[in-house]
């Protein structure tokens, strides 16, 4: 199943859900990554990680370990 972590910069996709129910998952959801939200991968940091995304009209950076927990679809 595709996750946010393996989306290339420039990709637009839609969040399906965040896996898990721990503090990290909760924080990701509070930041707007809930089912149905549209996300755009803006760029990767110079060393390939973390990634910068645009969500709800603002910019957020998150590590790939966290992005892997965000299931996305077209």
């Amino acid at each position: 199943m595709p996750t946010l972590a393996n989306q290339a910069p420039g990709t637009r996709c839609r969040v399906l859900h965040v896996t898990g129910s721990d503090a990290t998952a909760q924080r990701l959801m509070e930041m707007g990554l809930v089912g149905g939200t549209e996300v755009e991968v803006v760029k990767l940091a110079p060393l390939g990680d973390p990634m910068q995304i645009s969500v709800l009209g603002y910019h957020l950076s998150l590590r790939k370990t966290e992005a892997r927990r965000v299931r996305v679809g077209p």
């Binding site: 990701l28 930041m31 603002y58 910019h59 957020l60 950076s61 998150l62």
Partner: peptide, 12 residues
């Protein structure tokens, strides 16, 4: 402890 999540807003 678990690695703290790095979920950081990049403000305007």
């Amino acid at each position: 402890g678990p690695a703290a999540p790095f979920v950081l807003e990049l403000p305007d």
